[in-house]
């Protein structure tokens, strides 16, 4: 799928129209760590099939926001609804079922160092391993690797992979569970411009192939331009601005414009 990722040069649909099919809804969401009020009042709606980029200075709570969505951080106050279900009110089983629909690509890739690439991909499927025939498991793993252009790396260990390959493998491992919502935590940080573009194109390819809804935390403005249908800018724990790339690029607020310069 990504053999010629840089040549494909995909771009997000800037004329994307919300279909009213709300996937994630946040109402007055708050999160603090001690006296550090990271998220003060977040109100946000994310629609199905949308690619939403979240921009903001370091420490404004972008990563905390998506960690709240995936359940790694507990919210203090407000409502967080995923597919209409308030996750604070869900019981364990329902919560797990809802969270299964959410995939998370970590900034570092978060690959399991002690396992090979194959084992990294098989790990999320451990619960189903007994019910999946060996041949089918092999084809699932190979397809996931093919999707991110890592066919040759199946028996390597994470330490033998480059930064870009680690990000791709992290993405493959997330996609193997077929999530409906993809959360990307700074997917292009630490990568050269060519690899960054490949990862950006990969995000779009994944969205098109699996019809996922994506939330992308990034500082990379080129990645934002390529991938986002809509952008929000976080400032001091609230959404300071919202719009398309073209709209925010011409914002009257010089602070918002500074992100796009």
């Amino acid at each position: 799928m990504t053999q010629n990722a840089t040549d494909i040069d995909l771009k997000a649909e800037t004329d994307y129209k919300p279909n009213g099919n709300v996937v994630i809804k946040m109402e007055h969401l708050k999160k603090s760590f001690g006296n550090n009020h990271v998220l003060r009042d977040i109100n946000l709606v994310i629609n199905k099939g949308e690619n939403l980029a979240i921009l903001g200075q370091s420490g404004t709570g972008k990563s905390v926001l998506i960690k709240c969505i995936v359940g790694l951080v507990e919210i203090d106050d407000g409502k967080l609804l995923i597919y209409g279900k308030n996750i604070s009110e869900l019981k364990d089983k329902e919560l797990i079922e809802t969270q299964k629909k959410v995939g998370f690509l970590f900034q570092s890739g978060a690959l399991y160092d002690s396992m090979t690439v194959r084992e990294n991909l098989e790990f999320p499927l451990r619960k189903q391993l007994s019910s999946i025939p060996k041949e089918e498991l092999e084809s699932i793993v190979k397809e996931a690797l093919h999707d991110v252009g890592l066919d040759e790396a199946i028996d390597k260990t994470p330490s033998e992979l480059s930064g870009g390959m680690r990000k791709r493998l992290g993405l493959a491992r997330t996609l193997i569970l077929k999530p409906e919502i993809m959360l990307y935590d700074e997917p292009t940080t630490g990568l050269d411009p060519i690899t960054s573009k490949e990862i950006s194109n990969l995000i779009l390819e994944v969205q098109k192939k699996y019809n996922t809804t994506s939330v992308i935390i990034t500082h990379d403005i080129e990645c934002t331009r390529l991938t986002a249908n809509r952008i929000i800018v976080l400032k001091e724990g609230v959404c300071a601005a919202e719009g398309t790339f073209a709209e925010l690029e011409k914002s009257a607020d010089p602070w918002i414009r500074s992100f796009f310069e």
Binding site: V70, G71, L72, I96, Q99, K100, V102, G103, F104, F106, Q107, S108, A110, L111, Y112, D113, F123, P124, R126, K127, G170, R173, T174, L177
Partner: peptide
């Protein structure tokens, strides 16, 4: 601790393990 630092523990949790 190194798994915690490199978010591998979080990755296990979000992958339904």
């Amino acid at each position: 601790a190194s798994m915690n630092v490199t978010e591998q523990i979080d990755a296990m949790q979000v992958s339904d393990n």
